[in-house]
Write a protein that binds this DNA or RNA. Structure first.
Lengths: 245, 245
DNA sequence: CGAATAGTGTCTATAAGACATTATACT
DNA sequence: AGTATAATGTCTTATAGACACTATTCG
């Protein structure tokens, strides 16, 4: 900023989306197959450039979610995760990406995309361990997204975002167990949830039982923060899935 | 992304720095007077454009810290705060800023800058209430930075970053009281700090008393996260400063 | 009935809130 | 001595962890 005719550099701005959900009681992340270079054919998280100079960043995130994954972004938890802009992370030049974290209830398999060659849910674990390789620095982005989700479960009511409009307490427990990769005591969990104001609200009715007493149904309450927080125990391998780091 | 010859838009990338410290037992934020348009003459947080295409974002943050505020960024807590890129926030065009949060020990008044017309510490409270107006969306950025610091005090050992190399327990308490804007019981606070592993480590010696028993000196311990967390009480106006928000 | 899942109660350990007491400096 | 600040201790209350027990379904 000392030269008279110095001009600030311009960069390409993208959004990337770590979209987490629960399938078969284990954490999954949405991946798309890249249809264009660079990294054509490799898997990556959904994302893309701003469509024009004036598009707000959050709008771009919702647009890509819809374009690449065919998912409606309305009434979906979406927050900024961080900036990934190391020089050299994209061969096309200086590309700075604003990563976002999105949580959605479990969905059936077919996820159609108009822009990407293919979209599918992959086990988060496979990405974190590297069994599922990703383009760019997307493995790191997913890892940061998963870690963010783990943290938020402690202090916020985020867990309900993984569930549909109504759910049981044990559904909620499965969210915690899958995301944290541990197992929890159902009795203490039940007490904790019930004792936290505005976390869940009973909605009359019960889910038809699968060989046991029917479970009461709840919906997400108005509360957004958990106090006292949910305590994440030291990692104890759960039945659900092995725990990476 | 449908047109054949569509080109992604380029944006100007800046870094902004919310630098917090404690002065006279109250939270202050570093502001600089803008030396150039737009908003010339108004106060703003330090920041500026990337110097070239290849500069990493964290490097730019440390560079601006040094250039605009004359502060050495080594061994200083610095983390990403968020992205502020609403179209129209800067009259020069589409400018996307990556805001950072930095904490430093209390410093003497003179803060010299080579790039900005003037630099000085302002009471965070004055910024939050709008008594001290800021350029761009910097009031919001400062508010987010202060809120982030408040949150981090709960779960991390961040408080020691406000203190010098050695400090007393009541110094640490003043950090909590100033940032949170409440008052705490010194006895319970002492017990809590002592009982948290790796938070503080006694370093022989005591600070010369100011009319009371001398206080033992400590230094920051290796621990980075607090468990169980420090609990932030419901807001009770403290002697230190009125609480906005 | 027995198996399985849901929901409740009870005991104990830990830690926070309130507050008394002792310790060591200064004037 | 009197005052101020630091450090320790004690009692009560809230909540987590462990685990027994009851309730309600299905086969």
């Amino acid at each position: 900023m000392t030269d008279e005719d110095w001009q600030p550099p311009r960069v390409l701005l993208t959004v990337d989306l770590v979209i987490l959900t629960l399938r078969n009681a284990s954490l999954h992340v949405l991946l798309v197959e890249r249809g264009i270079e660079p990294y054509k054919g490799l898997m990556a998280v959904p994302g893309g450039f701003l469509c024009d100079e004036t598009e707000p960043v959050p709008d771009a995130a919702r647009r890509e979610l819809s374009e690449e994954a065919g998912l409606d972004a309305d009434a979906l938890h979406l927050e900024e995760l961080g900036v990934y802009g190391a020089p050299g992370r994209d061969p096309r030049g200086r590309v700075v990406s604003v990563a976002h974290l999105a949580i959605m209830p479990g969905l059936p398999d077919p996820v159609a995309g108009t822009d990407a060659a293919a979209a599918r849910w992959s086990r988060a674990d496979d990405v974190l361990t590297g069994r599922q390789g990703l383009a760019f620095d997307h493995q790191r982005i997913v890892a940061d997204g998963v870690e963010r989700a783990r943290r938020k479960l402690e202090h916020s009511a985020l867990a309900t975002a993984f569930c549909g409009p109504s759910f049981t307490i044990s559904d909620l427990q499965q969210v915690y167990e899958a995301v944290w990769g541990i197992s929890l005591d159902p009795r203490n969990f039940y007490r904790k949830i019930q004792g936290t104001r505005d976390f869940v609200i009973p909605v009359g009715g019960a889910r038809k039982s699968r060989g046991g007493r029917p479970a009461r149904l709840f919906r997400a309450g108005p509360g957004t923060s958990l106090f006292p927080p949910m305590i994440r125990p030291a990692l104890t391998p759960s039945p659900a899935e092995g725990r990476p780091q």
